[in-house]
Amino acid sequence: MIDDLLPMTNVFAIALKQKQYKTYILSDETANSALEVVPERGGIAISWLVEGKEMFYLDAERFANPDLTVRGGIPILFPMCGNLPDNTYTYKGVERKLKQHGFARDLPWTATEQVTDGCAAITLVLNSDEKTQAVYPFDFQVAFTYQIKGNSLEIVQEYTNIGADPMPFSSGLHPYFLAPDKTNLRFEIPGMQYRDQNTHSKGYFTGVFDPTLNEIDVSFDELTGLAAIVTDATRNLRLTLSYSSSYGKLVFWMVEGKDFYCLEPWTAPRNALNTGEHLIYLPPGATCQMLVRMTATFFE
């Protein structure tokens, strides 16, 4: 009887499985939650189970093909978000090529620290090298720590400039949330107005997006808060996405006929490496830290 009154202690673990890629599986066994992370495939998290239910969409065929970018999980956007005109930007009078969303999502990361005390967490690191410097002439280290506990996932990011010059960059996350029925989604986004990437027009947000459109690609550029909430009535799921103040934009993307929607925190808009708009200029030797938290709650 006394044992029944004691608080339940969560049991955390990390397992390593060799699939197509080495996959780290973080688990909170008490909460029936788990996160799968694949360092060598762009440091990506590809699956997040909450109460045994999947939160992320994943295109398995694209994931299996290393020549294709991943559609699913949480691709990492660095050192820029979005695309550049002709994939080109100019730095100190020199033109360089950098493809959409940068290179972090395409490169292998290295797993370092692991924690199973109080949470399940793993840190992945990406360091600059000759390959990155050819398209982005800066010395850096980026570290992502994925942490799960209960029904929450936290992603702590550290960007460090280890070079001698100020380092301009933007960063973002591109989560693909699973939504088999997109007709019952409602969004609480801290921004009244959005800009349509395809038409360049502005519109006022009403809390819903039309799932019958071929594509929706809009940016909320003037946020009034640090969290967005998505209610999926079909799955009885409420998802809260919160983020640190460095993230000044939320991009929403949805494609007809695919079981996902994307709600993406970005620090700067497209083409910021050329325009300088909202770019972060990190001083030599400095580190910038950011946080994104996702919490999933099921209701009756």
Results as ranks from 00 to 15, higher is better:
193 Q>C: 03
177 F>P: 05
190 P>A: 05
202 K>P: 05
197 Q>M: 15
169 F>D: 00
174 H>N: 01
206 T>E: 03
175 P>R: 09
164 A>L: 14
161 N>S: 10
191 G>I: 05
152 S>F: 11
158 E>D: 12
156 V>G: 07
152 S>G: 07
174 H>L: 05
187 F>A: 11
201 S>A: 15
179 A>W: 00
184 N>C: 14
159 Y>Q: 01
202 K>M: 08
170 S>K: 02
164 A>Q: 15
179 A>H: 00
178 L>V: 09
170 S>I: 13
203 G>Q: 07
152 S>I: 13
202 K>N: 15
157 Q>R: 00
191 G>Q: 02
201 S>I: 10
204 Y>E: 11
174 H>T: 04
186 R>W: 00
192 M>P: 11
205 F>L: 03
166 P>Q: 11
192 M>H: 13
175 P>I: 10
161 N>W: 15
199 T>Y: 08
171 S>Y: 01
197 Q>C: 00
179 A>I: 00
175 P>F: 11
181 D>H: 06
188 E>Q: 06
205 F>A: 02
192 M>Q: 15
181 D>C: 03
156 V>A: 05
185 L>K: 02
152 S>N: 11
156 V>P: 02
152 S>V: 06
160 T>R: 14
205 F>G: 09
202 K>G: 03
196 D>F: 04
169 F>T: 05
179 A>V: 08
163 G>L: 07
163 G>F: 14
159 Y>G: 00
171 S>P: 06
184 N>W: 04
167 M>V: 07
172 G>W: 15
199 T>D: 14
200 H>N: 03
178 L>M: 10
155 I>S: 15
203 G>P: 10
167 M>L: 14
205 F>V: 07
201 S>K: 09
158 E>L: 02
164 A>K: 14
156 V>D: 10
162 I>V: 15
167 M>W: 01
157 Q>Y: 00
161 N>F: 13
193 Q>I: 11
158 E>M: 07
170 S>M: 09
166 P>S: 06
181 D>Q: 05
162 I>Q: 06
164 A>E: 15
205 F>T: 05
186 R>F: 03
179 A>E: 00
152 S>P: 00
172 G>P: 03
179 A>Q: 02
154 E>P: 03
158 E>N: 10
202 K>C: 12
168 P>V: 03
169 F>Y: 10
166 P>N: 11
156 V>N: 15
191 G>M: 03
159 Y>N: 09
191 G>C: 10
183 T>E: 13
203 G>N: 05
152 S>H: 07
189 I>V: 12
198 N>W: 05
159 Y>H: 04
181 D>S: 09
152 S>K: 14
203 G>C: 05
206 T>N: 01
153 L>G: 13
180 P>T: 14
165 D>I: 11
206 T>K: 00
177 F>Y: 12
194 Y>Q: 04
169 F>M: 11
202 K>L: 13
199 T>R: 09
189 I>Q: 01
181 D>P: 02
202 K>F: 12
154 E>R: 15
180 P>N: 02
177 F>V: 09
185 L>H: 01
189 I>P: 06
164 A>P: 00
167 M>Q: 04
166 P>H: 02
198 N>H: 01
161 N>V: 15
152 S>Y: 02
